[in-house]
């Protein structure tokens, strides 16, 4: 299985499409960092103008951590697109290129092949999120000192600099898990198609539809919300609440893991039963 995964990785990184996600994240993070460096203080002044009547701000809230949080908030809806592009191509790409039959002539089961592809897709997803974390926090150090962080989470939470790192690690770990769901969905669609565009568009359609439903606070949508995985995608923000509501995080994590498992099981079922003609 290890060799198979290595093989899938080498195939993955030989394709240009794989680098689109990294390049897009790099550009967006750099642009936001520069923008915040130039205009960040004005933004903060606007945000806290009513507090400025009463308080003098000693120190600055525009720093590495606050900007990283803003980047995450801005990017979190867009990373699924980057994830879906690659995960949606994992199986359908082989079908589209006509290499499946050749691949399956080797002495390995369909389950092994699909699992190796699935692990590769999820590893790529993890790498993308870790890249975002390292880039946001690392690049931020060139512009700002680390410092206390302001988060709007039910109330205005100003988190002490010594109380931030574990929150970011928790948030990114949760972020990886939530992106695994998106990757799992795109991968599942990928087993149904013979070209890459279909799975990517399908998974994005599902994502957009569910996100809209998750954000409606009326009638029947309220009933649907707990069953939609999109309701839990932004759960990484919970790590910046004070105090952290671990019950919600555990519950959300369990639901996300359930989705990951179901998507994999469905993909496996489809792929093992599939009549491969290319």
């Amino acid at each position: 299985m290890g060799t198979l995964i290595k093989l899938e990785f080498s195939k993955l990184f030989k394709r240009e499409i794989t680098y689109i996600g990294f390049i897009a994240i790099f550009l967006i993070v750099v642009i936001i960092q520069i923008g915040m460096f130039i205009e960040g203080q004005k933004l903060l002044d606007f945000l806290v103008k009513s507090m400025a009547d009463v308080f003098v701000f000693e120190g600055s809230l525009i720093n590495t951590y606050s900007v990283t949080y803003i980047i995450l908030n801005s990017l979190w809806l867009h990373i699924p697109i980057l994830v879906a592009i690659v995960a949606g191509d994992m199986v359908s790409g082989e079908a589209g290129r006509g290499t499946f039959r050749l691949l399956l002539t080797r002495p390995l089961s369909r389950t092994q092949l699909l699992t190796a592809k699935y692990i590769t897709a999820q590893a790529y997803t993890s790498m993308l999120v870790v890249f975002l974390m390292v880039l946001s926090l690392g690049l931020g150090h060139f512009f700002w000192e680390p410092g206390d962080m302001m988060v709007l989470m039910n109330t205005i939470n100003i988190l002490d600099v010594s109380d931030i790192w574990w929150r970011f690690i928790g948030a990114f770990a949760y972020g990886v898990m939530s992106m695994w769901v998106v990757a799992g969905l795109a991968f599942m669609f990928s087993t149904m198609a013979s070209n890459s565009l279909g799975p990517v568009v399908s998974s994005m359609s599902v994502l957009i539809l569910f996100t809209i439903l998750s954000n409606f606070s009326i009638g029947i949508f309220e009933v649907l919300k707990p069953f939609l995985f999109t309701t839990y995608l932004s759960g990484w923000q919970l790590f910046f609440d004070d105090p952290v509501d671990w019950n919600i995080i555990w519950k959300a994590s369990a639901i996300l893991i359930l989705h990951i498992s179901v998507f994999y099981a469905v993909a496996l079922r489809i792929f093992t039963k599939k009549d491969i003609t290319t």
């Binding site: 945000l47 507090m51 009547d53 949080y69 803003i70 988060v151 709007l152 039910n154 109330t155």
Partner: peptide
């Protein structure tokens, strides 16, 4: 002790102030 105005600008990109 002082009076302070409640913030009323929920800005999505920096969080959600309920």
């Amino acid at each position: 002790g002082f009076d302070i105005q409640q913030i009323d600008i929920p800005m999505k990109f920096i969080g959600s102030l309920k």
